[in-house]
Amino acid sequence: MNEEDADRAVGRLLREHATRHRAGDALQSAVRTEIALEAAGQRRQAAPPVARRWHWPAWGLTAAGFACGVLATAITLHLLPPTDGSRALEQELASSHVRALMVAHLTDVASSDQHTVKPWFQGKLDYSPPVKDLAGDGYPLIGGRLDYVAGHPVAALVYRRHGHLINLFIWPADGQAAPTLHSHQGYQLAHWRNAGMQFWAVSDLNGEELQTLARLIP
């Protein structure tokens, strides 16, 4: 065998048998989280709260486009208003969580200060969602944003737990219900009602840590 053939044989052996290490789900998720947080942080530096107003119409357009998409989905899925905890709603919340990470549109207001985040929702929603920083309990608040679920504007709060992000969606609902766990395409969802609001927490965290969060929120 000449050297060239021998090299080709080595190449073949390697290609066929050597281990190709692949990035695990945890790494994929950690990278997306880092990027999303970085993008949120950059926006905070780039746009101080007062100067944000000019930015709002542009964002509104995006939101409108997004809302259209959601509406189309809602129609296709015959989705009821967001008082119904259907599978379609879980799907939509999981998608919203993923999208927030993917396009790094994680927060409109990036702040760990609940007194900054809570007033930010005024005038954007006709209700006032409870906002609480839980850094002391290991769930620091990253910020908040306006999201659309089944065509309704809802409050989304973003918390961090170790290397993972949690989207907490909040909108009004009657009644009381203890947290129930659901899972959708690898994401965990916790749902509960309290004090005139309903809460959906979505994350790739395990269910237990979502329930801990549920206990910490009013």
Binding site: H21, A23, L27, V31, E34
Partner: peptide, 30 residues
């Protein structure tokens, strides 16, 4: 990301260190 992890894993020969290398590289890349 897979290619990045494969290279890191082969160079540092430790899965957790490879994770860190890739995560940091992605942040720098961003």
């Amino acid at each position: 990301l897979d290619a990045a992890y494969n290279l890191a894993r082969w160079l540092v020969r430790d899965e957790h260190v490879a994770d860190d290398m890739v995560q940091d590289a992605c942040l720098r890349a961003y």
